[in-house]
Design a protein around this nucleic acid. Sequence first.
DNA 1: CCAATATGTAAAAAATATATTACATTTAGT
DNA 2: ACTAAATGTAATATATTTTTTACATATTGG
Lengths: 64, 64
Amino acid sequence: MKTKIREFRKEQKITQEELAAIVDVTRQTINSLEQGKYNPSLELAYKITKALNKDKIEDVFIMD
Amino acid sequence: MKTKIREFRKEQKITQEELAAIVDVTRQTINSLEQGKYNPSLELAYKITKALNKDKIEDVFIMD
DNA sequence: CCAATATGTAAAAAATATATTACATTTAGT
DNA sequence: ACTAAATGTAATATATTTTTTACATATTGG
């Protein structure tokens, strides 16, 4: 599973720490997700999608 | 978070056990999810969405 | 009504996500 | 080049999901 979090986060011009605050997780969680280190919960994936102003979870998280 | 798993599963005329086998989890996991007992992983949510022939995760899982 | 199949539930274990803390490295601005 | 901010990383702790096992209840078909 890959993600476009980093790409979209930069479009929004926010830092990992800011995104983390918005979706209420730690910066390390965002950092790990950007690097595809694991599989988030659905709720977190949803919050991140919203925070990045994307319509669908699938726009941000690309499943293999 | 609510889900339409049960509704869509019945449309497809498959049992909890069959759906569980398709997405490679136990029947108890499907049962619990249908009852909204927790927040699945993104990967599982995705697999279930596909198994139910829906386009988007958001079609199956309704966030509050 | 009987038998088989499907579903609900629950406790404990295992697996995995997320937090915490701390420090190292990289990047950006001046 | 310096400094501050941003990012990478790692170890351990905690929280949550998922499995396992087992049994109870409900539903369906003959």
